[in-house]
Design a protein around this nucleic acid. Structure first.
Lengths: 217, 217
DNA sequence: TTTTTAAAGGGGTTTTTCCCTGTTTATTTG
DNA sequence: CAAATAAACAGGGAAAAACCCCTTTAAAAA
């Protein structure tokens, strides 16, 4: 906060149409000014390392091509932990929200909110130090315990490759071939994953992989 | 266009954060003014039917809860065909783009463009009557012929239900039960779809359904 | 050295996939 | 109108793939 009681904001979002519109909106709020905006984490690092003024708040998009929101949040927390991160995303799936909050975000906003909520979020962020919308609070309640999630989600390299290949039209025999393993080993991976993920068949695996963003279609 | 040579724009988008930011951005362009913005097609209908001034351009989001972009575009084309529709969307999948262009959109913009491109698009739309970004032009080239697509995509009611159920962990026997049909009939649906969609197995069907937005996860 | 883990095999059931046939009911057309 | 045609539904039979449980081996970790 500078001498006039104005809080400063930096927008990190590769959707520059959105970013610049957002900038105009935020500048229209009293007490908030946008310092600059960056297309991704790398650009943010560059500008901050080159001595650009540090903001009070960083509005951080999650889906960015070069250095995404998770990595960027990590870097911010390590190097400038005083900056408050407000995650911005289209996605409202639990996985994404939780991951971002664990990386140190002080708030999570869906991009489809109205301007008043953004203003509220920014104000609350400066006053209380955090902001959580109803949906996020709900998500936090529903969230499974981190260790249970760890058991489920800690996939070994080969398991991840198998999952991705299983989300194609290949037979297990073909998957075994391209992975250079015995079909019996592949069957072992399959069986182990079915048990851990509590799924009944390959379609369940595809759905799981999609929900957890293990594959893209 | 009014007497001062100013083109008018209406924004239809349920993401009011985005919509209002966009409004500020467009108003910052010379020659363009936003008349109002609506949260969805129904609100647009209401305001236009109540005698609100007709714009030159409607910026139309595709994903809206109440009356989506497709339906809204249809209504605009039927009732006010002089208005130029510029579709706005996060999605860049061919299906979505093509569908919107067929509904009469004069242009298609991804939301992750920069402000200059929006300005260019608006200007070109008024001058040439259409605007197509590189990605859209590319999509148009890749697009399959409408009739071939028709054969593929004209699903009968039962086929659609079957596809959706096949994208779950149910066995075909279970699907037959809930649909009140013989497993053999279900097998017929399956076989016919595999042939028409040129897919090899059930995973292929799941992937297809996801790509064509026949199911949501 | 004991335990754990990754890879692989044996052997079996169930489900999926495939092809071909037949019935019934609309729909089209000669 | 009657005959041909198309469609929705269903069955038989069989090979391939998926699914399941239990064991073994070799190497790595504890």
């Amino acid at each position: 906060m500078n001498k006039e009681g104005i809080h400063t904001v930096v927008v990190v979002d590769d959707h520059s149409l959105f970013a610049r519109s957002l900038e105009k909106l935020i500048n229209s709020f009293s007490n908030f000014r946008v310092l600059f905006h960056a297309k991704n984490g790398v650009e943010l690092q560059d500008r901050i390392n080159k001595g650009e003024k540090l903001p009070d708040i960083i509005l951080l998009d999650i889906n960015m091509p070069v250095m995404n929101g998770y990595e960027t949040a990590e870097w911010i927390m390590e190097n400038h932990p005083k900056i408050k991160i407000l995650a911005l995303s289209m996605e409202d799936d639990e996985q994404t929200i939780l991951k971002m909050l664990r990386k140190g975000a002080k708030g999570y906003l869906l991009k489809d909110i109205n301007p008043e909520i953004l203003n509220t979020a920014l104000k609350e962020l400066m006053e209380k130090g955090f902001y959580h919308s109803e949906k996020v609070s709900e998500t936090l309640l529903h969230s499974i315990s981190p260790d249970e999630e760890g058991i489920i989600m800690n996939f070994k390299e080969n398991e991840l490759i198998f999952i991705q290949l299983a989300c194609s039209e290949m037979t297990y025999k073909e998957i075994a071939d391209v992975m250079g393993l015995s079909p019996k080993t592949i069957d072992g991976y399959r069986q182990d994953l079915f048990k851990r993920l509590k799924i009944k068949n390959r379609v369940g695996l595809v759905i799981f992989a999609l929900k957890k963003n293990l594959i893209k279609i």
